[in-house]
Amino acid sequence: MVNTTKNVLPWRILTLVVLLMLGAGLWVATTKIDYTWRWKRVPQYFVYHAETMTNAPADGLVADIENLGEKTRIKFISETDDELFFEIDSTTLNVSIDEDLFEGDHIGSTFEWQAGPLVIGLWNTLWISAAASVLGLIIGMITGLCRVSNNTTLRDLSAIYVELIRGTPLLVQLFIFYFFLGTVLDIDRFVAGIFALAVFAGAYVAEIIRAGIQSIPKGQMEAARSLGMNVPQAMVYIILPQAFKRTLPPLAGQFISLIKDSSLVSVIAINDLTKSGREVITSTFATFEIWFVVALLYLVMTFALSQVISLVERRLAVSD
């Protein structure tokens, strides 16, 4: 057979054309329905300039107005002769000197940049996933080691755990954690959500770890033992480092799944990215835009994670 280098460029272009056609088709389809795209409304749900209004706390008099540049300080004397100072943004000044004010009158406002619901949701999804990942990894490691243990009870218990978790839907597990365990043990919804995710991921991690350990040739353990190492030493120094390297790709997949599965915690009223998205939609009706943005944010998170893990993988590949 003649070995010719295949020119991939035309095929790349074809890929691009197919994607563009798909996109164009979708766009045409959306123009046929009655939908107004309002992309401009989206950014304000990331960050917004929040206005805090300052109102007169009681009936009284504006005694003095002092301009400090950006800010303006107002001296207010109430009818009961209490002296009060307010600081507001100069441009919002709504009173003049010696003006009589009634309780609730608008004096001025201050503006501050604040994180919108999407950023808050993103942050919640991030830390919930991170906490559940760490916890799930610990649970999975311990269970995985139990799965290959010589002790029958440990083996049975871990097998039951894995079967129970893998055999029931995560959504149902979340409800059980929140409604049953949450009530019985009186735990917070965040704790319930994180634990449900961790216990769910732990079962899968355990199977990955077990497979990783069992994929290391028996000779490695024998060599370690023949040098006088005990089982824990052999595990820590010889078996687990090698198993870890082999399990990285499937573990990465598991944790990427976990980030996506964390969207389910929105059903127990945790303000994650998905729930924030739903809330924003109820106030904007920008259904299409928000769901696209939410999807993109999940994609950014999972892509970043898979990049980090492939970096670690390359690092560990030096001994191959």
Binding site: P217, G219, Q220, E222, A223, A224, R225, S226, L227, G228, I238, P241, Q242, K245, S319
Partner: peptide, 16 residues
């Protein structure tokens, strides 16, 4: 075991 050295057919060096 620490007093008894062993050499295996498949070497069993620690690859990592």
């Amino acid at each position: 075991r620490r007093e008894v050295g062993m050499v295996f057919q498949q070497f069993n060096l620690f690859p990592h």
